[in-house]
Simulated scan of single mutants.
Amino acid sequence: MIDSKWRSKFQPLFDKMGKKLVTHNITPQAITWGAFVLGVVASIVVIQGWMLLSIALLWLSGLLDVLDGTVARLTRKSTKAGAYMDLILDRMVEAFYILAFAYKFPEGNYAYLLFYIAVIFNFTTFIVAATLFQNKGVKSIHYDVGIAERTETFIIFTLMGLFSYYIFPILMIFNVIIFITGIIRFKRVLNHCKLFD
Protein backbone atom coordinates (compact mmCIF):
# COMPACT_ATOMS: atom_id res chain seq x y z
CA MET A 1 0.00 0.00 0.00
CA ILE A 2 2.91 2.35 0.73
CA ASP A 3 4.18 1.93 -2.83
CA SER A 4 0.82 2.83 -4.36
CA LYS A 5 -0.01 5.69 -1.99
CA TRP A 6 3.39 7.36 -1.54
CA ARG A 7 5.31 6.60 -4.74
CA SER A 8 4.19 9.82 -6.45
CA LYS A 9 5.66 11.89 -3.58
CA PHE A 10 9.13 10.45 -4.15
CA GLN A 11 8.97 10.01 -7.92
CA PRO A 12 10.65 13.39 -8.69
CA LEU A 13 13.69 12.19 -6.70
CA PHE A 14 13.66 8.83 -8.50
CA ASP A 15 13.42 10.68 -11.82
CA LYS A 16 16.58 12.66 -10.98
CA MET A 17 18.42 9.46 -10.09
CA GLY A 18 17.08 7.77 -13.20
CA LYS A 19 18.31 10.60 -15.44
CA LYS A 20 21.81 10.18 -13.98
CA LEU A 21 21.72 6.49 -14.89
CA VAL A 22 20.45 7.32 -18.39
CA THR A 23 23.41 9.68 -18.96
CA HIS A 24 25.71 6.74 -18.19
CA ASN A 25 23.83 4.54 -20.70
CA ILE A 26 22.76 2.06 -18.00
CA THR A 27 19.86 0.00 -19.31
CA PRO A 28 16.71 -0.91 -17.34
CA GLN A 29 17.59 -4.58 -17.70
CA ALA A 30 21.06 -4.03 -16.19
CA ILE A 31 19.47 -2.21 -13.25
CA THR A 32 16.98 -5.06 -12.75
CA TRP A 33 19.81 -7.59 -12.65
CA GLY A 34 21.79 -5.31 -10.33
CA ALA A 35 18.83 -5.20 -7.93
CA PHE A 36 18.63 -9.00 -8.03
CA VAL A 37 22.36 -9.51 -7.40
CA LEU A 38 22.33 -7.03 -4.49
CA GLY A 39 19.31 -8.82 -3.02
CA VAL A 40 21.10 -12.17 -3.20
CA VAL A 41 24.23 -10.67 -1.63
CA ALA A 42 22.03 -9.19 1.14
CA SER A 43 20.75 -12.72 1.78
CA ILE A 44 24.27 -14.15 2.00
CA VAL A 45 25.18 -11.37 4.45
CA VAL A 46 22.24 -12.46 6.68
CA ILE A 47 23.87 -15.89 6.96
CA GLN A 48 27.08 -14.18 8.10
CA GLY A 49 25.09 -12.38 10.79
CA TRP A 50 25.88 -8.86 9.53
CA MET A 51 22.32 -7.61 9.83
CA LEU A 52 22.86 -3.86 9.40
CA LEU A 53 24.89 -4.40 6.23
CA SER A 54 22.29 -6.86 4.98
CA ILE A 55 19.46 -4.39 5.60
CA ALA A 56 21.39 -1.61 3.80
CA LEU A 57 22.02 -3.87 0.79
CA LEU A 58 18.38 -4.98 0.76
CA TRP A 59 17.14 -1.38 0.62
CA LEU A 60 19.70 -0.52 -2.05
CA SER A 61 18.36 -3.48 -4.03
CA GLY A 62 14.86 -2.05 -3.51
CA LEU A 63 16.00 1.37 -4.76
CA LEU A 64 17.39 -0.19 -7.93
CA ASP A 65 14.10 -2.04 -8.32
CA VAL A 66 12.35 1.34 -8.40
CA LEU A 67 14.93 2.86 -10.73
CA ASP A 68 14.74 0.15 -13.41
CA GLY A 69 11.14 1.07 -14.17
CA THR A 70 11.93 4.78 -13.92
CA VAL A 71 14.78 4.46 -16.43
CA ALA A 72 12.58 2.32 -18.70
CA ARG A 73 9.94 5.05 -18.78
CA LEU A 74 12.46 7.88 -19.23
CA THR A 75 14.06 6.10 -22.20
CA ARG A 76 10.73 4.75 -23.49
CA LYS A 77 12.09 1.22 -23.23
CA SER A 78 9.32 -0.04 -20.98
CA THR A 79 8.30 -3.54 -22.08
CA LYS A 80 6.07 -6.31 -20.81
CA ALA A 81 9.06 -8.67 -20.90
CA GLY A 82 10.98 -6.28 -18.65
CA ALA A 83 8.04 -5.99 -16.26
CA TYR A 84 7.74 -9.79 -16.19
CA MET A 85 11.43 -10.28 -15.46
CA ASP A 86 11.30 -7.59 -12.77
CA LEU A 87 8.36 -9.26 -11.00
CA ILE A 88 10.01 -12.70 -11.04
CA LEU A 89 13.41 -11.49 -9.84
CA ASP A 90 11.74 -9.44 -7.08
CA ARG A 91 10.06 -12.58 -5.76
CA MET A 92 13.36 -14.47 -5.99
CA VAL A 93 15.09 -11.82 -3.86
CA GLU A 94 12.36 -12.19 -1.22
CA ALA A 95 12.62 -16.00 -1.40
CA PHE A 96 16.41 -15.96 -0.96
CA TYR A 97 16.15 -13.50 1.91
CA ILE A 98 13.67 -15.68 3.80
CA LEU A 99 15.79 -18.76 3.02
CA ALA A 100 18.79 -17.01 4.60
CA PHE A 101 16.72 -16.27 7.71
CA ALA A 102 15.60 -19.90 7.83
CA TYR A 103 19.26 -20.95 7.85
CA LYS A 104 20.38 -18.36 10.41
CA PHE A 105 17.29 -18.48 12.66
CA PRO A 106 15.69 -21.92 12.17
CA GLU A 107 13.33 -21.45 15.13
CA GLY A 108 10.99 -19.49 12.84
CA ASN A 109 10.62 -22.25 10.24
CA TYR A 110 6.81 -22.48 10.34
CA ALA A 111 6.54 -18.73 9.82
CA TYR A 112 8.93 -18.95 6.84
CA LEU A 113 6.95 -21.79 5.27
CA LEU A 114 3.71 -19.90 5.74
CA PHE A 115 5.35 -16.84 4.17
CA TYR A 116 6.11 -18.85 1.02
CA ILE A 117 2.53 -20.14 0.86
CA ALA A 118 1.13 -16.63 1.41
CA VAL A 119 3.37 -15.14 -1.29
CA ILE A 120 2.47 -17.87 -3.81
CA PHE A 121 -1.23 -17.22 -3.19
CA ASN A 122 -0.91 -13.44 -3.24
CA PHE A 123 1.38 -13.33 -6.28
CA THR A 124 -0.91 -15.65 -8.22
CA THR A 125 -3.87 -13.33 -7.61
CA PHE A 126 -1.68 -10.38 -8.60
CA ILE A 127 -0.67 -11.97 -11.92
CA VAL A 128 -4.25 -12.98 -12.72
CA ALA A 129 -5.44 -9.44 -11.99
CA ALA A 130 -2.64 -8.09 -14.21
CA THR A 131 -3.89 -10.18 -17.13
CA LEU A 132 -7.61 -9.53 -16.62
CA PHE A 133 -7.77 -5.85 -15.69
CA GLN A 134 -7.14 -3.05 -18.17
CA ASN A 135 -3.88 -1.24 -17.51
CA LYS A 136 -4.59 2.44 -16.80
CA GLY A 137 -1.32 3.24 -15.05
CA VAL A 138 2.22 4.10 -16.12
CA LYS A 139 3.57 0.59 -15.57
CA SER A 140 3.86 -1.97 -18.39
CA ILE A 141 1.13 -4.15 -16.86
CA HIS A 142 -1.84 -3.52 -14.61
CA TYR A 143 -0.54 -3.10 -11.06
CA ASP A 144 -3.24 -4.13 -8.62
CA VAL A 145 -2.96 -2.25 -5.33
CA GLY A 146 -2.74 -4.33 -2.18
CA ILE A 147 -2.23 -3.92 1.55
CA ALA A 148 1.09 -5.81 1.43
CA GLU A 149 3.42 -4.52 -1.29
CA ARG A 150 7.21 -4.43 -1.70
CA THR A 151 7.96 -1.63 0.76
CA GLU A 152 5.92 -3.32 3.48
CA THR A 153 7.88 -6.51 2.84
CA PHE A 154 11.19 -4.68 3.20
CA ILE A 155 10.01 -3.03 6.42
CA ILE A 156 9.14 -6.47 7.84
CA PHE A 157 12.53 -7.88 6.73
CA THR A 158 14.20 -4.92 8.42
CA LEU A 159 12.30 -5.55 11.66
CA MET A 160 13.24 -9.23 11.48
CA GLY A 161 16.91 -8.29 11.12
CA LEU A 162 16.85 -5.75 13.94
CA PHE A 163 14.72 -7.80 16.36
CA SER A 164 15.74 -11.39 15.67
CA TYR A 165 14.19 -12.66 18.94
CA TYR A 166 10.77 -11.68 17.57
CA ILE A 167 11.07 -13.05 14.02
CA PHE A 168 8.21 -15.51 14.48
CA PRO A 169 5.51 -13.04 15.64
CA ILE A 170 6.69 -10.31 13.25
CA LEU A 171 6.53 -12.60 10.23
CA MET A 172 3.32 -14.33 11.30
CA ILE A 173 1.50 -10.99 11.56
CA PHE A 174 2.78 -10.09 8.10
CA ASN A 175 1.73 -13.47 6.74
CA VAL A 176 -1.84 -12.72 7.83
CA ILE A 177 -1.65 -9.34 6.06
CA ILE A 178 -0.37 -11.01 2.87
CA PHE A 179 -3.23 -13.54 2.99
CA ILE A 180 -5.77 -10.74 3.52
CA THR A 181 -4.29 -8.89 0.52
CA GLY A 182 -4.60 -12.02 -1.61
CA ILE A 183 -8.15 -12.76 -0.46
CA ILE A 184 -9.32 -9.22 -1.25
CA ARG A 185 -7.78 -9.43 -4.72
CA PHE A 186 -9.12 -12.97 -5.23
CA LYS A 187 -12.65 -11.72 -4.55
CA ARG A 188 -12.11 -8.72 -6.85
CA VAL A 189 -10.97 -11.02 -9.67
CA LEU A 190 -13.94 -13.36 -9.13
CA ASN A 191 -16.37 -10.43 -9.24
CA HIS A 192 -14.73 -9.21 -12.43
CA CYS A 193 -15.08 -12.65 -14.02
CA LYS A 194 -18.75 -12.88 -13.09
CA LEU A 195 -19.40 -9.78 -15.20
CA PHE A 196 -18.46 -11.83 -18.28
CA ASP A 197 -20.05 -15.18 -17.36
Rank of each mutant, 00 (worst) to 15 (best):
I184S: 05
I183Y: 13
G182T: 02
P28Q: 03
L74D: 06
A95S: 12
A148L: 06
I44T: 08
L67K: 00
A72H: 01
I183W: 09
S61I: 02
K77F: 04
A72G: 07
H24M: 11
A148E: 02
N191V: 01
G137V: 05
A30T: 14
F126I: 02
W59V: 01
L52N: 08
A81C: 00
I155G: 09
A130D: 01
Q48I: 02
W6S: 11
L114I: 05
D3N: 10
F174Q: 04
T125I: 03
T158R: 05
L195V: 08
D65E: 09
A42F: 06
T23K: 13
F196L: 09
D144Y: 12
T79Q: 07
R188H: 09
A42E: 06
F174T: 03
K19D: 12
M92Y: 13
V22E: 07
A118V: 00
Y84M: 15
A81E: 12
W6Q: 11
F157S: 08
D15S: 13
F186G: 03
R150N: 09
I180P: 02
D68T: 05
R91A: 11
A72N: 03
K187H: 05
F105D: 04
W33Q: 07
N191R: 08
W33F: 15
I44Q: 03
S78D: 11
I177F: 10
F115N: 01
E149R: 04
T181Y: 02
M1V: 14
G69Q: 00
S8H: 14
P12R: 06
I127Y: 02
K5Y: 13
E107R: 12
Q11W: 08
